[in-house]
């Protein structure tokens, strides 16, 4: 890839599984500059003129195409706010891979705040994958604050997979979604925090149309002295189905606060919240140890499986 050094390439591999220039449309942002951009016949990527960021327009009916929009930061002290808007045409079916990797070797904080808005047309379907990753030995923090707004037209389906496993010191994620009739939102969040990290994830999902549904599931592990807050609210404004689930493991001095929020404003709104927080079950460790693993290896297997 053009203009990328080894660290930047490594970050790209971590957050977007990219080892070469991706197929299809892409926009690679590196240290606040476009390191590469490509549109296709059906997917047009244009830079915004007023604020940093891009507009991604996907033509109606576009199928089996993907868009990669990874961001990498390797300069210590860099702070940026980026606005990306996705317009997904009626009946399109695409995969969008975002992701942000920060390598901070310096002593100044590096921060990327990505504001993503999705306007999902009728009966369109997207799978959105977002990975966060941090590395670097500097004392400067690696901070990521993603803000995501999703507007789903009738019958659309949005699947979001958010993963943050390592190296991000501070995250405040806010996700809001508004769903019209028959629209469906599926969120799978996997989060691990360690050391002094802090991660806050807030969802507000409004089920506005008849037959809309949301399923928001978070699996997380808080190690060392890290702190997590999972605040998921589903508002049922019509006959709808909503489900949120927070399943967490705490280790060492890790702390987790799960805040269930359900608001039913329609008699036929069916909303469910589940939350479970606890340490690794002792019997799971014992079982794996009887298979020959050390306690530490057993712990790793259990966490890996849990976050898989």
């Amino acid at each position: 890839m053009l203009k990328l050094d080894e660290i930047q390439k490594r970050l790209l591999a971590e957050v977007a599984d990219l080892h070469a220039v991706p197929e299809g449309a892409y926009n690679i942002r590196s240290n606040s500059h476009a390191a590469g951009r490509q549109s296709t016949a059906n997917i047009e990527i244009t830079p915004k003129s007023d604020v940093p960021g891009i507009d991604i327009r996907i033509k109606p009916g576009t199928k089996n195409e993907s868009v990669h929009i990874p961001v990498v930061l390797t300069e210590s002290g860099l702070k940026e706010v980026v606005y990306n808007d996705f317009y997904i045409g009626e009946g399109a079916d695409v995969v969008i891979v975002a992701g942000c990797g920060i390598d901070n070797c310096g002593n100044q904080d590096s921060q990327h705040d990505g504001v993503h808005r999705f306007f999902v047309g009728k009966n369109a379907r997207i799978r959105y994958v977002e990975k966060h990753y941090g590395s670097g030995s500097g004392s400067g923090k690696r901070i990521l604050n993603p803000g995501t707004e999703v507007y789903q037209d009738e019958g659309s389906i949005v699947e979001m997979e958010m993963v943050q496993i390592k190296g991000v010191d501070d995250t405040e994620r806010t996700t809001s979604a508004e769903l019209a009739a028959g629209a469906k939102l599926i969120v799978r969040e996997r989060l691990m925090t360690h050391d002094d990290q802090r991660a806050i994830s807030t969802y507000v999902v409004s089920l506005n149309g008849e037959g809309s549904s949301a399923d928001v599931v978070s699996r997380s592990v808080a190690k060392d002295k890290s702190f997590q807050k999972f605040d998921a609210k589903i508002v049922g404004n019509a006959p709808c189905h909503g489900h949120t689930e927070c399943d967490s493991i705490i280790m060492d001095g890790g702390r987790i606060l799960a805040v269930p929020g359900l608001e039913a404003n329609d008699l036929d709104a069916e909303l469910v919240h589940e939350a479970a927080i606890g340490k690794i079950a002792g019997e799971q460790l014992v079982k794996l140890m009887t298979l020959g693993l050390t306690e530490q290896q057993a712990e790793e297997q259990i966490i890996n499986g849990f976050l898989k």
Partner: peptide, 13 residues
């Protein structure tokens, strides 16, 4: 368990 598959356990074993 949660997430550990039959094949994982057989492999570890």
């Amino acid at each position: 368990f949660k997430g550990i598959q039959v094949v994982d356990l057989l492999r570890i074993a």
